[in-house]
């Protein structure tokens, strides 16, 4: 039986990104990385709103969207839990999809700065070693 995990969401209300999006992002990552497993409970809207000191509607919205995506599901008596069929850590394809935007940006900048492919890949390898 999965325990309710103590989650440490980091929300910046004053960022340009809406709070609910930040939350979705973080929950996604937690699930993808395997930190949150199927059946793990998420804090209730009330708990999350209260501890993060944000409007509860933002929490609800995040949860609802995740629910409609199939990542979370509502269980009677337990609230929101991670859905079963997302137990496995995401396959490579999905994970690569996640990182594509960042890579695309790097590629764009490299083009602007006129950095050749070889040098860029070398730098990336170095960074991965760290």
């Amino acid at each position: 039986m999965a325990q309710k995990v103590h989650l440490n969401f980091q929300i910046n209300p004053s960022s340009g990104e809406p709070i609910y999006k930040q939350l979705i992002e973080q929950i996604n990552r937690l699930i993808l990385s395997g930190f949150l497993k199927a059946g793990d409970g998420l804090p209730s809207v009330r708990q999350a709103a209260s501890s993060l000191e944000v409007n509860p509607m933002t929490i609800s919205k995040a949860y609802s969207l995740l629910e409609s995506n199939g990542l979370l599901e509502r269980r009677r008596g337990r609230g929101m839990v991670v859905a079963e069929n997302h137990t496995k850590p995401q396959n490579m394809g999905r994970r690569l999809e996640k990182i594509t935007p960042v890579l695309a940006e790097a590629a764009a900048q490299a083009r602007q700065l006129n950095i050749p492919k070889k040098e860029l890949l070398q730098k990336l390898a170095e960074l991965l070693e760290e």
Binding site: P13, V45, A49, S50, V54, P56
Partner: peptide, 29 residues
């Protein structure tokens, strides 16, 4: 925090005029 609790527990309606945007970013819907 008080406001949020009130809204949570008792579904209170609130109008909050301010120019401190960070407060609104937290509390307002």
């Amino acid at each position: 925090k008080q406001l949020i609790e009130l809204n949570l527990d008792e579904n209170k309606t609130m109008l909050f005029s301010t120019h401190i945007t960070s407060d609104l970013e937290r509390a307002a819907a």
